[in-house]
Computed example of a mutant assay.
Amino acid sequence: MRSEVYIVAYPGRTPRIEHTGGVAVRRTGSHTVHLVSAAATPLGGDVISVRVVVEPGARLAVRSAAATVTLPSAATPESRTHWDVESAGELDIDPQPTVVAGASRHLTETRIRLTGAGSIRLRERIQIGRSGEREGFWSGALHADVDGAPLLRHRVELGGGSVTDDVIGRPLACVSELRYPEATFDTEATVLALAAGGCLATWQGERLTN
Rank of each mutant, 00 (worst) to 15 (best):
E133R: 03
T190K: 08
Q204P: 01
A117W: 09
T110P: 04
P181T: 09
Q127P: 01
G161C: 03
T164D: 14
V100E: 11
E157M: 10
G197M: 05
A201M: 13
I126Y: 10
A144L: 11
D165G: 00
R155F: 07
A201F: 02
T110C: 02
P181W: 13
A201K: 06
P181C: 06
R179A: 04
L107G: 07
R153W: 05
Q204Y: 02
R121F: 08
G136T: 12
L158I: 12
Q127V: 10
Y180M: 11
E109S: 05
L107K: 00
R113P: 01
V167W: 14
A195M: 09
A103K: 03
S176C: 10
I126C: 04
G148I: 06
G197P: 04
T98R: 05
T187E: 13
H143L: 06
G140L: 13
A103D: 08
L107V: 09
R130C: 04
A144N: 11
T110V: 06
G136F: 06
A196T: 03
I168C: 11
W203E: 10
L114F: 15
G161F: 10
D145V: 07
L200C: 02
H154C: 08
H143R: 13
A189S: 01
S104G: 10
A195G: 09
L107A: 09
E135A: 15
A183D: 02
V100P: 06
R207G: 11
F185Q: 05
I168W: 11
H154V: 00
D165Q: 02
V100L: 14
G161I: 07
G118N: 13
V99M: 00
T110M: 05
A101C: 00
C199L: 14
T110I: 15
G140S: 11
H106W: 14
V191N: 10
V167Y: 08
G102N: 06
W138H: 15
I120G: 09
L114H: 11
A101W: 04
L152D: 03
F137N: 06
S162Q: 09
A149D: 04
L178K: 00
Q204V: 02
A195C: 07
E124K: 07
R207N: 10
A144P: 06
V167Q: 13
V156E: 15
L178W: 02
T190H: 04
L142K: 04
A195T: 07
V100I: 13
R113A: 14
T202N: 14
V146A: 09
D145G: 09
G198E: 01
R179D: 03
P181E: 03
C174G: 10
D145H: 04
L200H: 09
